[in-house]
Design a protein around this nucleic acid. Structure first.
Lengths: 341, 341
DNA sequence: TACATAATTGAAAGCGCTTTGGATGCCACT
DNA sequence: AGTGGCATCCAAAGCGCTTTCAATTATGTA
């Protein structure tokens, strides 16, 4: 069933039917009713590809999903997607996901943009000096970046959380508790958030004249396993750290197992603060020792970015170009006074 | 840059350029070279919407993502998507994801199908007597179902794992170890895999004249938190079960915390077998007591389904319509002989 | 009653691509 | 010279929609 058939069935022109469907004012209410009724009966749906071709808009936002054999999927990606989806469904938008090898992301993004399949782009997993940024700027297509790109002029539309502030505050809390030996379990080194979080820790320590030893920093994928390994490494250090900052509750999961296996008590022998993306499958308050965290909902960020993207496509009012969300520092039982040496 | 412009630039007709690009034989090799060269220089990319309109194919597979405010995202979804993506990227296919309220899935799937935006559909989270099945059959579009629908005639294309067999085998192992008091921590009751897994447990027990008490079955979302709650409940039972079957390593995570908190030892006081979807963030061998599991890679299933879907669209050889994968039973330390009462 | 104005509706062009059904020129062969 | 076959190339139709421009009818006003 297409427009032509439907209009013939109704004895109307395609023009009128199209107008009735798209809410144009110049069509008789009775006629509109009749059209709507026929749509219900026939189950007619406009062909999106044709709509897109005719209007240049198709109600879709595009994103590149990094993937490859052996490339680990990321829980955070799914959670973020849920947020985007939650908003998209309200506006009858959908996503076009282009899977791409992580090495090929710039080209994949460009292909997606000029394929004519999407109205706007979303970009995540930002890196320092991210090469996608100049490319995006050269495109004439709306986009929003999740995160920022360290070292690049911040003149692009983004939504980010204050990673540096979060880890600065967390570090300060531990300092106040008397800790002096710190370690940082971070995400992959090239990612922007990892850079900023490290800077947050370092600058808080510097204020007290402390430094973060290179051996006390780990950069790794944020999985349970990596958390375990990193913590095992820290615990073997001659000057064992007593205060751990951790970039994810998933990492914390493994880290805490290492702590337990070493016979140490979390919140007493070792204090730990993790960043909490509010993953539904892993709540910090449910850990056997509830986790002190810096919190910011990844899903809420997804919703917000979708709002901005869709709003821009629909030209619904202006949106701020740059947003920086504060995180909350939530103190639970995994932090305590530094043990007496 | 579009075809017309490109062809004018080359002094050729659109026809010839199009043919050169799509590998038709009736174009002079020298001409083809010239065209390819021009494409490189201009960065021309065909408009996908127009291609789709003209050919009816657009190299995309569609799926519905259940989402709503408060609807929990699911790690398993992301992992599966990674598998689909891994294969799709090899064939330059992409996904069109339509987010939809879980109550609206049938309609959303239909909309997606007749939107003309996708060549094939993928469907997951199957339920007993799933209402999407008759709808899919009425469409003339290829699709593959992940899982099956209990109670429906198995005449639709699917890929599933032998859930019943997996849990049957796992139960038998525990029986052989002398356990007699069982409990099952399952996924949501309406989902097909949950039904079959329960059946597997029940039938293995029945062979020994044992029954599974209703109080010893929990159905819940597969999160860490639900695992904790379910296990706490089991441990309070007057006849405390000693053998636990668990539908996910995520559930097991919480369950084991409950075991520890109760001062019980996993693999001694309590034996537990979990189903392992091979989530990279949570490896059963890394648990403090390594987990005995039934294993089947969700990601591998994604790759395979994408193969079948894309293969069908490209009409590349016949594919089996139904596939049922066996799971592996991997014995680690979380199972042991039943404790002497 | 006659004319301006508003309310409805339609014909047709166009979005960028593929593909059908010819053209055209060149060569070998009779 | 005349014919058929090949290798190349092109004009134009068509995919299903939106939108411009114009036509038609209904309504109101002097």
């Amino acid at each position: 069933m297409n427009l032509k058939q439907l209009s013939e069935l109704l004895g109307l022109s395609q023009t009128t039917v199209s107008r009735a469907l798209n809410g144009y004012p110049e069509v008789n209410e009775a006629t509109r009713e009749r059209v709507l009724q026929a749509v219900k009966e026939t189950g007619y749906r406009p062909n999106k590809a044709a709509q897109r071709l005719a209007t240049g808009k198709a109600g879709s936002i595009g994103l590149v999903m990094p993937t490859a054999p052996g490339h680990q999927s990321d829980v955070h990606f799914g959670e973020f997607l849920a947020g985007l989806g939650e908003e998209a469904v309200r506006h009858d938008f959908h996503f076009v996901i282009m899977p791409a090898d992580p090495d090929d992301e710039v080209a994949a993004l460009r292909r997606l943009a000029i394929s004519g399949n999407v109205d706007a782009l979303f970009v995540a997993y930002m890196r320092g000096h991210d090469p996608r940024l100049p490319m995006l700027k050269s495109l004439s297509m709306p986009y929003v970046v999740h995160g920022r790109s360290f070292g690049a002029e911040p003149d692009y539309p983004y939504l980010d959380i204050d990673n540096e502030g979060a880890f600065y505050d967390a570090t300060r809390l531990l300092l106040q508790l008397g800790h002096t030996r710190f370690a940082l379990m971070n995400g992959p080194m090239h990612l922007d958030f990892a850079i900023r979080r490290r800077n947050g820790v370092i600058s808080a320590l510097a204020e007290r004249g402390l430094a973060l030893d290179e051996g006390c920093i780990s950069h790794a994928l944020m999985t349970d396993e990596q958390g375990l390994l990193a913590m095992e490494h820290f615990l073997q250090l001659p000057e064992r750290p007593t205060a751990i900052l951790c970039s994810s509750t998933v990492l914390a999961l493994g880290a805490i197992r290492a702590v337990n296996q070493a016979g140490l008590r979390l919140g007493e022998d070792i204090s730990l603060i993790a960043h909490d993306d509010v993953l539904p499958l892993l709540k910090p308050e449910n850990f056997s020792v509830p986790l002190t965290t810096t919190r910011s909902s990844l899903r809420a960020a997804g919703v917000r970015i979708a709002q901005r993207l869709i709003g821009t496509v629909k030209q619904a009012g202006p949106f701020p170009d740059q947003e920086l969300w504060k995180t909350e520092l939530i103190v639970r039982a995994s932090t305590g006074p530094a043990p007496q040496a």
